[in-house]
């Protein structure tokens, strides 16, 4: 339902351009470009169309970005956001190359899942598949490139929570073409991690173990890593029913995770955090538990 609404809103933009937002603006008949916030820099101004949006100037003051979160809050799991790109001098920026990267500053890692950006017209870009793989401090780095001019801004979310029931929203099913690979590079290409369930096929409601292999980018086993595991169901904001433990086997880059258990069928994301020689990186595996 919500999505349908979004599509309508987007269509509206498409047909009528940025200025035609009377529906949203009912009650504030003020001309929208005038709704700048206090922190303009000379000619530079922040444009704000939506009451509930977050705004940011890009680092070099080229653009003013407006971030709209349709579900009100970002949460652990899969999110959709909308970004409106304005020139810092006013006016919408169409046909820009917009990239969005979720980032966890304290962990120094992001996620494997790449957000999908689609231009809707009138400077509006919708961003789907924004995956935040755990609770905690996250940032969304937004980069805008147009005509050789690139600039970026970081939106900060100090406390991303697992979704509480009261704020619960229905969720999109897992994105199509999910990557179910069991061997992946970590987000920053530092480690190559692979996993295997020791009992073969992973069965629901069963405590079982995983064998992990961690190598560096050159394929050399990493034997001294500190490894932690987080499992999550993005659609429900629901974690594992257990607290798994990781054992370092000390050779061959082998580690064993005991106490894995999945109690609901469907799409799970298991994130492995690896810290070795002061370098921290992480990788998320998608699983389809039946």
């Amino acid at each position: 339902m919500k999505r349908l609404l979004l599509v309508f809103v987007a269509l509206f933009f498409l047909l009528s351009g940025c200025a035609a937002r009377e529906d949203q603006m009912a009650g504030h008949s003020a001309e929208m470009e005038g709704m700048t916030e206090g922190h303009g820099h000379g000619d530079v101004k922040v444009t704000k169309h939506f009451d509930e949006s977050l705004t940011k100037l890009t680092d070099n003051n080229l653009y003013s970005l407006e971030l709209v979160i349709p579900d009100e809050h970002l949460k652990m799991g899969v999110n959709t956001v909308e970004i409106i790109v304005h020139h810092s001098t006013g006016g919408d920026v169409a046909q820009a190359d917009v990239t969005v990267t979720p980032w966890m500053p304290s962990m120094g890692h992001g996620v494997m899942e790449k957000p999908v950006v689609m231009e809707r017209g009138g400077g509006l870009y919708s961003v789907e598949n924004v995956v935040l793989s755990m609770t905690g401090h996250w940032q969304l780095q937004v980069k805008v490139a147009k005509d050789d001019k690139t600039d970026e801004a970081v939106f900060d979310f100090p406390e991303i929570k697992a979704m509480g029931h009261e704020h619960a929203m229905m969720h999109a099913p897992p994105p199509k073409d999910l990557d179910y690979a069991t061997e992946k590079m970590t987000v920053n290409d530092i480690f190559k991690v692979s996993y295997k369930s020791t009992g073969g096929l992973i069965r629901i409601n069963r405590i079982h173990s995983w064998e992990l292999t961690i190598r560096d980018a050159d394929g050399q086993p990493v034997n001294n890593a500190k490894v932690t595991v987080v499992g999550d169901m993005p659609e429900h904001g629901h974690g594992l029913p257990t607290q798994p433990e990781v054992f370092n086997m000390g050779v061959g880059g082998f580690y064993r995770i005991d106490g894995m258990k999945f109690q609901m069928p469907g799409w799970w994301v298991v994130t492995i955090n690896v810290m070795a020689d002061g370098v921290h990186d992480a990788v998320s595996f998608n699983l389809d538990v039946l």
Binding site: M163, H165, M170
Partner: peptide, 10 residues
């Protein structure tokens, strides 16, 4: 209780 994400039915 359809809005409970663990139930999440239409």
């Amino acid at each position: 209780k359809a809005q409970n994400p663990e139930l999440g039915h239409d």
